[in-house]
Amino acid sequence: MTTAVLIATIIKVVVFFHIAPIMVSLLTLAERKVSAWIQFRYGPNRVGPWGLFQPIADGLKFFFKEEVVPEGANPILFRLAPALAAGPAMMTIAVIPFTFPILIDGQPFSLAIADLNIGVLFFIAMSGLAVYGILLGGWASNNKWSLLGGLRSSAQMISYELSMMMSVITVVMLTGTMNLGEMFTYQAHHTWVLFMFPVGTIAFVLFLIAAFAETNRLPFDLAECETELVGGFHTEYSSMKFALFFMGEYSAMFMMSCLLATFFLGGPSFFGLIENMDSIWWRAILGFVVFMIKVGFFLFFYIWVRWTLPRFRWDQLMYLGWKILLPLSILNLTATGILIATGVL
Protein backbone atom coordinates (compact mmCIF):
# COMPACT_ATOMS: atom_id res chain seq x y z
CA MET A 1 0.00 0.00 0.00
CA THR A 2 1.54 3.23 -1.04
CA THR A 3 1.47 6.44 0.95
CA ALA A 4 -1.00 8.00 -1.49
CA VAL A 5 -3.39 5.11 -1.03
CA LEU A 6 -3.03 5.34 2.73
CA ILE A 7 -3.80 9.05 2.77
CA ALA A 8 -6.68 8.58 0.35
CA THR A 9 -8.06 5.82 2.57
CA ILE A 10 -7.90 7.97 5.68
CA ILE A 11 -9.62 10.83 3.90
CA LYS A 12 -12.23 8.44 2.53
CA VAL A 13 -12.96 6.94 5.96
CA VAL A 14 -13.27 10.31 7.65
CA VAL A 15 -15.46 11.81 4.94
CA PHE A 16 -17.79 8.92 4.37
CA PHE A 17 -18.19 8.07 8.00
CA HIS A 18 -19.43 11.58 8.68
CA ILE A 19 -22.00 11.40 5.97
CA ALA A 20 -24.26 9.33 8.23
CA PRO A 21 -24.52 11.73 11.23
CA ILE A 22 -24.90 14.70 8.92
CA MET A 23 -27.66 12.98 7.02
CA VAL A 24 -29.32 12.00 10.28
CA SER A 25 -29.39 15.57 11.51
CA LEU A 26 -30.73 16.78 8.19
CA LEU A 27 -33.27 13.98 8.21
CA THR A 28 -34.75 15.04 11.53
CA LEU A 29 -35.32 18.45 10.05
CA ALA A 30 -36.60 17.00 6.77
CA GLU A 31 -39.03 14.79 8.62
CA ARG A 32 -40.52 17.74 10.44
CA LYS A 33 -40.56 19.93 7.37
CA VAL A 34 -42.18 17.34 5.11
CA SER A 35 -44.75 16.38 7.71
CA ALA A 36 -45.53 20.06 8.16
CA TRP A 37 -45.95 20.61 4.43
CA ILE A 38 -48.22 17.60 4.09
CA GLN A 39 -50.33 19.03 6.90
CA PHE A 40 -50.41 22.59 5.47
CA ARG A 41 -47.96 23.85 8.06
CA TYR A 42 -44.58 25.55 7.81
CA GLY A 43 -42.52 23.35 10.08
CA PRO A 44 -39.54 24.60 12.04
CA ASN A 45 -38.51 27.97 10.65
CA ARG A 46 -37.13 29.91 13.59
CA VAL A 47 -33.53 28.69 13.96
CA GLY A 48 -31.41 29.85 11.08
CA PRO A 49 -32.60 30.28 7.48
CA TRP A 50 -35.60 27.98 6.83
CA GLY A 51 -34.91 26.42 10.21
CA LEU A 52 -31.69 24.83 8.98
CA PHE A 53 -30.00 25.06 12.36
CA GLN A 54 -32.88 23.35 14.09
CA PRO A 55 -30.95 20.04 14.39
CA ILE A 56 -28.14 21.88 16.17
CA ALA A 57 -30.62 23.41 18.60
CA ASP A 58 -32.19 20.01 19.15
CA GLY A 59 -28.83 18.42 19.76
CA LEU A 60 -27.84 21.10 22.25
CA LYS A 61 -31.13 20.62 24.02
CA PHE A 62 -30.57 16.89 24.25
CA PHE A 63 -27.16 17.44 25.76
CA PHE A 64 -28.53 19.64 28.52
CA LYS A 65 -31.47 17.42 29.40
CA GLU A 66 -31.50 15.47 32.61
CA GLU A 67 -30.56 11.83 32.35
CA VAL A 68 -33.15 9.67 34.05
CA VAL A 69 -32.48 6.04 34.86
CA PRO A 70 -35.62 4.45 36.23
CA GLU A 71 -35.64 2.51 39.46
CA GLY A 72 -35.23 -1.21 38.87
CA ALA A 73 -33.71 -0.74 35.43
CA ASN A 74 -30.74 -2.92 34.58
CA PRO A 75 -28.00 -0.30 34.82
CA ILE A 76 -25.57 -1.79 32.34
CA LEU A 77 -27.98 -2.91 29.65
CA PHE A 78 -30.00 0.27 30.02
CA ARG A 79 -26.95 2.30 29.09
CA LEU A 80 -25.70 -0.18 26.51
CA ALA A 81 -28.92 -0.37 24.52
CA PRO A 82 -28.79 3.04 22.80
CA ALA A 83 -25.26 2.38 21.63
CA LEU A 84 -26.32 -1.01 20.31
CA ALA A 85 -29.16 0.64 18.46
CA ALA A 86 -27.05 3.30 16.81
CA GLY A 87 -23.87 1.27 16.30
CA PRO A 88 -24.82 -1.41 13.75
CA ALA A 89 -26.71 1.03 11.55
CA MET A 90 -23.67 3.26 11.35
CA MET A 91 -21.34 0.32 10.81
CA THR A 92 -23.15 -0.79 7.68
CA ILE A 93 -22.07 2.46 6.06
CA ALA A 94 -18.66 0.84 5.71
CA VAL A 95 -19.68 -1.37 2.82
CA ILE A 96 -21.69 1.19 0.86
CA PRO A 97 -19.89 2.26 -2.34
CA PHE A 98 -20.89 5.88 -2.69
CA THR A 99 -19.64 6.31 -6.21
CA PHE A 100 -17.53 4.87 -9.00
CA PRO A 101 -13.96 3.97 -8.13
CA ILE A 102 -11.23 6.47 -8.84
CA LEU A 103 -7.62 5.94 -9.81
CA ILE A 104 -4.91 6.38 -7.20
CA ASP A 105 -1.36 5.56 -8.30
CA GLY A 106 -2.80 4.05 -11.43
CA GLN A 107 -4.79 1.52 -9.41
CA PRO A 108 -8.60 1.58 -9.16
CA PHE A 109 -9.54 2.80 -5.70
CA SER A 110 -12.99 1.86 -4.44
CA LEU A 111 -14.95 4.62 -2.72
CA ALA A 112 -16.50 2.37 -0.10
CA ILE A 113 -14.90 2.53 3.34
CA ALA A 114 -14.38 -1.24 3.22
CA ASP A 115 -14.65 -2.77 -0.18
CA LEU A 116 -15.63 -6.22 1.10
CA ASN A 117 -16.23 -9.11 -1.22
CA ILE A 118 -18.96 -10.24 1.13
CA GLY A 119 -20.51 -6.84 1.61
CA VAL A 120 -24.01 -8.30 1.44
CA LEU A 121 -23.26 -10.73 4.24
CA PHE A 122 -21.82 -7.91 6.34
CA PHE A 123 -25.02 -5.97 5.86
CA ILE A 124 -27.10 -9.01 6.81
CA ALA A 125 -25.07 -9.53 9.95
CA MET A 126 -25.33 -5.92 10.99
CA SER A 127 -29.02 -5.63 10.38
CA GLY A 128 -29.48 -8.76 12.49
CA LEU A 129 -27.63 -6.98 15.32
CA ALA A 130 -29.84 -3.93 15.17
CA VAL A 131 -32.66 -5.73 16.94
CA TYR A 132 -30.58 -6.07 20.10
CA GLY A 133 -30.51 -2.38 20.80
CA ILE A 134 -34.26 -2.10 20.77
CA LEU A 135 -34.89 -5.38 22.54
CA LEU A 136 -32.41 -4.64 25.31
CA GLY A 137 -33.63 -1.06 25.66
CA GLY A 138 -37.15 -2.30 26.12
CA TRP A 139 -36.19 -5.07 28.49
CA ALA A 140 -33.77 -3.10 30.65
CA SER A 141 -36.15 -0.22 31.28
CA ASN A 142 -38.25 -2.12 33.82
CA ASN A 143 -41.38 -0.79 32.18
CA LYS A 144 -44.22 -2.80 30.73
CA TRP A 145 -44.65 -0.54 27.72
CA SER A 146 -40.96 -0.70 26.93
CA LEU A 147 -40.93 -4.45 27.27
CA LEU A 148 -43.90 -4.85 24.94
CA GLY A 149 -42.27 -2.53 22.46
CA GLY A 150 -39.05 -4.50 22.57
CA LEU A 151 -40.84 -7.83 22.15
CA ARG A 152 -42.86 -6.59 19.24
CA SER A 153 -39.79 -5.16 17.63
CA SER A 154 -37.82 -8.39 17.84
CA ALA A 155 -40.70 -10.47 16.48
CA GLN A 156 -41.28 -8.01 13.71
CA MET A 157 -37.63 -7.83 12.70
CA ILE A 158 -37.23 -11.57 12.59
CA SER A 159 -40.40 -11.91 10.51
CA TYR A 160 -39.41 -9.40 7.94
CA GLU A 161 -35.72 -10.20 7.84
CA LEU A 162 -36.59 -13.48 6.13
CA SER A 163 -38.36 -12.01 3.16
CA MET A 164 -35.80 -9.23 3.00
CA MET A 165 -32.95 -11.68 2.79
CA MET A 166 -34.81 -13.68 0.16
CA SER A 167 -35.07 -10.61 -2.00
CA VAL A 168 -31.39 -9.79 -1.38
CA ILE A 169 -30.50 -13.29 -2.51
CA THR A 170 -32.53 -12.63 -5.66
CA VAL A 171 -30.40 -9.56 -6.30
CA VAL A 172 -27.23 -11.52 -5.60
CA MET A 173 -28.34 -14.19 -8.07
CA LEU A 174 -29.25 -11.62 -10.69
CA THR A 175 -26.00 -9.68 -10.41
CA GLY A 176 -23.84 -12.64 -9.60
CA THR A 177 -21.82 -10.98 -6.85
CA MET A 178 -21.83 -10.20 -3.15
CA ASN A 179 -19.58 -7.20 -3.49
CA LEU A 180 -21.69 -4.07 -3.51
CA GLY A 181 -19.27 -2.23 -5.79
CA GLU A 182 -19.38 -4.97 -8.37
CA MET A 183 -23.12 -5.16 -7.94
CA PHE A 184 -23.71 -1.64 -9.25
CA THR A 185 -21.02 -2.04 -11.90
CA TYR A 186 -22.95 -5.02 -13.21
CA GLN A 187 -26.16 -2.99 -13.18
CA ALA A 188 -24.43 -0.11 -14.94
CA HIS A 189 -23.34 -2.41 -17.72
CA HIS A 190 -26.56 -4.37 -18.05
CA THR A 191 -29.67 -2.85 -16.60
CA TRP A 192 -30.90 -1.96 -13.11
CA VAL A 193 -32.27 -4.81 -11.08
CA LEU A 194 -35.49 -2.84 -10.78
CA PHE A 195 -36.00 -3.22 -14.51
CA MET A 196 -35.25 -6.95 -14.59
CA PHE A 197 -38.94 -7.73 -14.93
CA PRO A 198 -40.64 -9.46 -13.23
CA VAL A 199 -38.38 -10.93 -10.56
CA GLY A 200 -36.20 -7.84 -9.99
CA THR A 201 -39.22 -5.60 -9.62
CA ILE A 202 -40.93 -7.95 -7.21
CA ALA A 203 -37.72 -8.24 -5.21
CA PHE A 204 -37.56 -4.45 -5.11
CA VAL A 205 -41.09 -4.15 -3.76
CA LEU A 206 -40.48 -6.89 -1.19
CA PHE A 207 -37.23 -5.30 -0.07
CA LEU A 208 -38.86 -1.91 0.16
CA ILE A 209 -41.66 -3.19 2.37
CA ALA A 210 -39.28 -5.19 4.51
CA ALA A 211 -37.00 -2.17 4.82
CA PHE A 212 -39.83 -0.20 6.38
CA ALA A 213 -40.40 -2.99 8.85
CA GLU A 214 -36.70 -3.38 9.59
CA THR A 215 -36.28 0.29 10.43
CA ASN A 216 -39.42 0.36 12.53
CA ARG A 217 -40.94 3.07 10.44
CA LEU A 218 -44.58 3.68 9.85
CA PRO A 219 -46.69 1.82 8.85
CA PHE A 220 -44.73 -0.80 10.82
CA ASP A 221 -43.67 1.21 13.87
CA LEU A 222 -45.31 -1.22 16.29
CA ALA A 223 -42.24 -0.98 18.51
CA GLU A 224 -42.92 2.56 19.59
CA CYS A 225 -46.53 2.91 18.64
CA GLU A 226 -47.45 6.01 20.68
CA THR A 227 -51.16 5.32 20.85
CA GLU A 228 -50.73 1.94 22.47
CA LEU A 229 -47.36 1.83 24.16
CA VAL A 230 -46.69 5.42 25.24
CA GLY A 231 -43.24 5.54 23.69
CA GLY A 232 -42.55 1.87 23.14
CA PHE A 233 -39.01 0.75 23.86
CA HIS A 234 -37.75 4.29 24.46
CA THR A 235 -40.42 5.31 26.98
CA GLU A 236 -37.91 5.57 29.80
CA TYR A 237 -35.09 7.11 27.82
CA SER A 238 -34.16 10.73 28.01
CA SER A 239 -31.40 13.11 27.03
CA MET A 240 -28.66 11.80 24.74
CA LYS A 241 -29.67 8.18 25.26
CA PHE A 242 -32.95 8.97 23.63
CA ALA A 243 -31.11 10.93 20.95
CA LEU A 244 -28.96 7.86 20.21
CA PHE A 245 -32.06 5.75 19.61
CA PHE A 246 -33.24 8.47 17.32
CA MET A 247 -29.95 8.57 15.50
CA GLY A 248 -30.04 4.80 15.21
CA GLU A 249 -33.43 4.91 13.59
CA TYR A 250 -32.49 7.61 11.14
CA SER A 251 -29.12 6.18 10.25
CA ALA A 252 -30.84 2.84 9.64
CA MET A 253 -33.16 4.67 7.30
CA PHE A 254 -30.23 6.26 5.54
CA MET A 255 -28.51 2.94 5.24
CA MET A 256 -31.55 1.19 3.88
CA SER A 257 -31.94 3.93 1.32
CA CYS A 258 -28.29 3.50 0.32
CA LEU A 259 -28.80 -0.24 -0.05
CA LEU A 260 -31.99 0.21 -2.02
CA ALA A 261 -30.16 2.52 -4.38
CA THR A 262 -27.25 0.13 -4.69
CA PHE A 263 -29.24 -3.08 -5.02
CA PHE A 264 -32.00 -1.97 -7.32
CA LEU A 265 -31.23 1.42 -8.85
CA GLY A 266 -27.68 0.77 -9.94
CA GLY A 267 -25.97 2.93 -7.34
CA PRO A 268 -24.31 5.95 -8.93
CA SER A 269 -25.05 4.88 -12.50
CA PHE A 270 -27.58 6.69 -14.59
CA PHE A 271 -28.55 5.05 -17.93
CA GLY A 272 -25.04 5.17 -19.34
CA LEU A 273 -24.69 8.91 -18.95
CA ILE A 274 -22.28 8.83 -16.08
CA GLU A 275 -20.68 5.43 -16.21
CA ASN A 276 -19.42 6.09 -19.75
CA MET A 277 -17.74 9.42 -18.98
CA ASP A 278 -14.11 9.69 -19.88
CA SER A 279 -12.91 11.70 -16.93
CA ILE A 280 -12.69 9.43 -13.92
CA TRP A 281 -12.89 12.30 -11.44
CA TRP A 282 -15.98 13.79 -13.03
CA ARG A 283 -17.48 10.34 -13.14
CA ALA A 284 -16.85 9.91 -9.43
CA ILE A 285 -18.20 13.31 -8.47
CA LEU A 286 -21.32 13.16 -10.64
CA GLY A 287 -21.78 9.54 -9.61
CA PHE A 288 -21.81 10.60 -5.99
CA VAL A 289 -24.38 13.27 -6.77
CA VAL A 290 -26.61 10.80 -8.59
CA PHE A 291 -26.24 8.31 -5.76
CA MET A 292 -27.24 10.87 -3.17
CA ILE A 293 -30.20 11.91 -5.29
CA LYS A 294 -31.40 8.32 -5.37
CA VAL A 295 -30.84 7.98 -1.64
CA GLY A 296 -32.60 11.26 -1.08
CA PHE A 297 -35.60 10.04 -3.00
CA PHE A 298 -35.88 6.98 -0.80
CA LEU A 299 -35.46 9.02 2.36
CA PHE A 300 -38.19 11.32 1.19
CA PHE A 301 -40.27 8.29 0.38
CA TYR A 302 -39.82 7.03 3.93
CA ILE A 303 -41.13 10.28 5.34
CA TRP A 304 -43.81 10.58 2.73
CA VAL A 305 -45.20 7.14 3.53
CA ARG A 306 -45.06 7.86 7.23
CA TRP A 307 -47.44 10.80 6.87
CA THR A 308 -49.72 8.95 4.45
CA LEU A 309 -50.38 5.45 5.73
CA PRO A 310 -51.88 4.48 9.06
CA ARG A 311 -50.21 1.99 11.34
CA PHE A 312 -50.85 -1.74 10.89
CA ARG A 313 -52.50 -3.79 13.57
CA TRP A 314 -50.16 -6.35 15.13
CA ASP A 315 -51.93 -9.36 13.64
CA GLN A 316 -52.05 -7.69 10.25
CA LEU A 317 -48.34 -7.11 10.45
CA MET A 318 -47.66 -10.76 11.19
CA TYR A 319 -50.12 -11.88 8.52
CA LEU A 320 -48.42 -9.71 5.95
CA GLY A 321 -44.95 -10.81 6.96
CA TRP A 322 -45.47 -14.57 7.17
CA LYS A 323 -48.34 -15.31 4.83
CA ILE A 324 -47.77 -12.90 1.98
CA LEU A 325 -44.25 -11.59 1.85
CA LEU A 326 -42.44 -14.78 2.77
CA PRO A 327 -44.21 -17.10 0.26
CA LEU A 328 -43.97 -14.40 -2.35
CA SER A 329 -40.26 -13.98 -1.82
CA ILE A 330 -39.68 -17.72 -1.92
CA LEU A 331 -41.69 -17.97 -5.14
CA ASN A 332 -39.77 -15.04 -6.49
CA LEU A 333 -36.48 -16.66 -5.61
CA THR A 334 -37.53 -19.90 -7.28
CA ALA A 335 -38.66 -18.04 -10.35
CA THR A 336 -35.34 -16.22 -10.46
CA GLY A 337 -33.49 -19.49 -10.33
CA ILE A 338 -35.62 -20.95 -13.12
CA LEU A 339 -35.25 -17.83 -15.22
CA ILE A 340 -31.49 -17.78 -14.79
CA ALA A 341 -31.21 -21.48 -15.43
CA THR A 342 -33.27 -21.23 -18.57
CA GLY A 343 -31.15 -18.32 -19.67
CA VAL A 344 -33.90 -15.78 -19.93
CA LEU A 345 -32.09 -13.36 -17.65
Binding site: V34, W37, F40, R41, W304, T308, L309
Partner: peptide
Amino acid sequence: GLSITFRNMFKPKVT
Protein backbone atom coordinates in the same frame (compact mmCIF):
# COMPACT_ATOMS: atom_id res chain seq x y z
CA GLY B 1 -52.98 8.07 -0.86
CA LEU B 2 -49.40 9.00 -1.59
CA SER B 3 -50.47 11.23 -4.43
CA ILE B 4 -52.91 13.05 -2.12
CA THR B 5 -50.26 13.75 0.48
CA PHE B 6 -47.79 14.75 -2.22
CA ARG B 7 -50.21 17.27 -3.65
CA ASN B 8 -50.92 18.57 -0.17
CA MET B 9 -47.34 19.67 0.16
CA PHE B 10 -47.81 22.45 -2.38
CA LYS B 11 -51.10 23.79 -1.15
CA PRO B 12 -51.17 27.09 0.71
CA LYS B 13 -50.29 26.88 4.37
CA VAL B 14 -52.92 27.48 7.02
CA THR B 15 -50.53 28.15 9.88
